[in-house]
Amino acid sequence: MIRDYQAPLLAKEEVSPGIWRLSLECPPIAREARPGNFVLLKAVSSSAPLLRRPLGVLETDAEKGTFGVLFRVVGAGTELLSGMAPGQILSVRGPVGGQFGPFEHGRVWAVAGTLGVVPLLFLRQARGAFDKLFLGVGNAGWRPFAEWVRARAPEMELFSDDGSLGKKGFAIDGLKDQALEDVSLAVCGPNPMMKALYGQYGARCADIQVSLERRMGCGMGGCFGCVVDTETGRRRVCIDGPVFQAREVKWDELHL
């Protein structure tokens, strides 16, 4: 059930320049969140900024009543979040949305573009290691982030746009020449990456679950600000998603 909670910040860690992991104490989120769910955080009670920032849940510890998020500083809202000190209180809305799974096949591969790995790592926490995990990043500047992911998911295969880390290419290149007929894919990354993945591999893989990202207003299904075009009409990413079967999404209508 989606509610607003006051949650103390327990710890923060800059895993890579501009990329922060926050650990928060919030037993209801720790108990209820499932892989694919997200929360909306607000650092301040003032109206600047007015809106909450939607962030995928990275991990939970139901016993300790804690959960974690990981985000990159991209604007004023995330800047404020990254500046919070342990002990300070954040407002958490959640848990929001549907989840990854069930999967059609026992073998599940994960495909992530940069911070799209966040909900996939939460899925990994629930399921154990992936049969394969492909991560795509930009250039050597992403090294600390990539190493942080590898420490949590040693099965990770790395791709970078310029070849400075891992193989040269995109995360979806990991699927090239692979037999995908008996594999389920869990995918999260920039929309163009997911669109390209479905375009290239949609015909060979029947179960591609993608987690979509859109600008959001309310984050609880009220405003219809975050809709995407699907085979069953315009649906809300927040509570009808964020995880959709790739074949349901009208990718040509999906603007960025």
Binding site: R215, F224, H255
Partner: peptide, 10 residues
Amino acid sequence: PGNPGARVWE
């Protein structure tokens, strides 16, 4: 169906 394209902007 409502409007296509972006729908909210802070």
